[in-house]
């Protein structure tokens, strides 16, 4: 992984202790892709349920999926744009919410291309909604898409068609 870090991407195999299917079916949960010891603890303070832990400011955040209530706050607080929200629906579809800090926000119902961590096309996805969190300078936009369940570990960006 060390080698990939230096090239600017990880793969889904690098993600450790992922939530199981059961947890994913219960609702949204955060996936934290913060594999480098940078001095930053913004997510810890954003979490209202103490689901995230970090000993010193340069540690990696560790998430407890039983405590995570899927509130999106850590995704919004992360300066690295490195937190994504995922879930599975009852009828077995996958859902991903991801930060999208660009002007061409897609519309609900639109079909977009899903991209992986290298910007490669994974396949189509349907936009469920776009939304923003925070006000003024703290405002950021997010997009929720519905896709094949196996893609939730790889879909990290979208491109409008």
């Amino acid at each position: 992984m060390e080698k990939r870090l230096r090239q600017g991407f990880i793969t889904s195999e690098d993600l450790k202790n992922l939530p199981d299917k059961e947890r994913l079916k219960k609702g949204w949960v955060a996936v934290i892709e913060c594999p480098q010891n940078i001095p930053c603890d913004a997510c810890i303070y954003a979490c209202k349920t103490q689901a995230l832990e970090m000993k010193t400011v340069a540690d990696l955040p560790v998430i407890n999926y039983d405590k995570c209530i899927g509130c999106f706050q850590c995704m919004h607080a992360c300066p690295g744009v490195a937190i994504f929200m995922v879930r599975l629906t009852d009828d077995g579809k996958g859902m991903v919410s991801l930060p999208y800090e660009f002007t061409d926000l897609p519309k609900a119902g639109e079909t977009v291309d899903l991209l992986n961590r290298l910007g490669e096309k994974l396949g189509p996805a349907r936009v469920i909604r776009t939304f923003s969190m925070g006000k003024d300078a703290a405002k950021s936009s997010y997009v929720t898409v519905e896709t094949a369940p196996e893609l939730i570990w790889d879909a990290r960006f979208i491109r409008r068609r």
Partner: peptide, 23 residues
């Protein structure tokens, strides 16, 4: 250099948007 000098997360943000980083 053979790898990015900046933080991984800054690199990841542009890689997923399809920007190549030629080390």
């Amino acid at each position: 250099m053979p790898g990015v000098g900046g933080y991984f997360v800054h690199a990841a943000k542009i890689r997923r948007a399809g920007v190549p980083i030629l080390t």
